[in-house]
């Protein structure tokens, strides 16, 4: 069973560096979004911003156009949205070469 779970240190890192920094934004949304009415103007803006953020994510990881390729590579190098391990994205590597 220890092979399945692995070292507990690594599980602690998962909690501190993965779960908590990610979940905190959902908790903020839960706490601050409480008073907002479904039809309110604020929510129209929030929804528009969420849509546009997703559009940015889509654009950043699209290897078809040359422009996002450059940004995706830069982001990958900074470790922000892309793995540094290029084996994971052979398509991106192919796009980089062309």
């Amino acid at each position: 069973m220890s092979g399945f779970i692995g070292d507990w240190h690594v599980l602690l890192i998962l909690l501190l560096a993965g779960i908590l920094p990610n979940e905190i934004w959902r908790v903020f949304g839960l706490l601050f979004g409480r008073g907002i009415d479904e039809g309110s103007e604020l929510l129209v803006w929030v929804r528009a911003s969420a849509t546009a953020i997703l559009a940015g994510v889509i654009r950043a990881c699209w290897p078809v156009f040359p422009m996002p390729c450059v940004t995706a590579r830069r982001q990958r190098d900074s470790g922000l949205f892309w793995p540094r391990d290029s084996r994971f994205w052979p398509g991106l590597c192919a796009a980089k070469r062309s």
Binding site: A17, W25, F28, G29, G33, D37, L43
Partner: peptide
């Protein structure tokens, strides 16, 4: 890792605010 993860997760905030109502 924690800094990069939390930056990537900010987008979850507006989604939660939009879905819960």
């Amino acid at each position: 890792a924690a800094i990069a993860v939390t930056l990537s997760a900010i987008r979850l905030f507006p989604m939660v605010v939009a879905v819960l109502p």
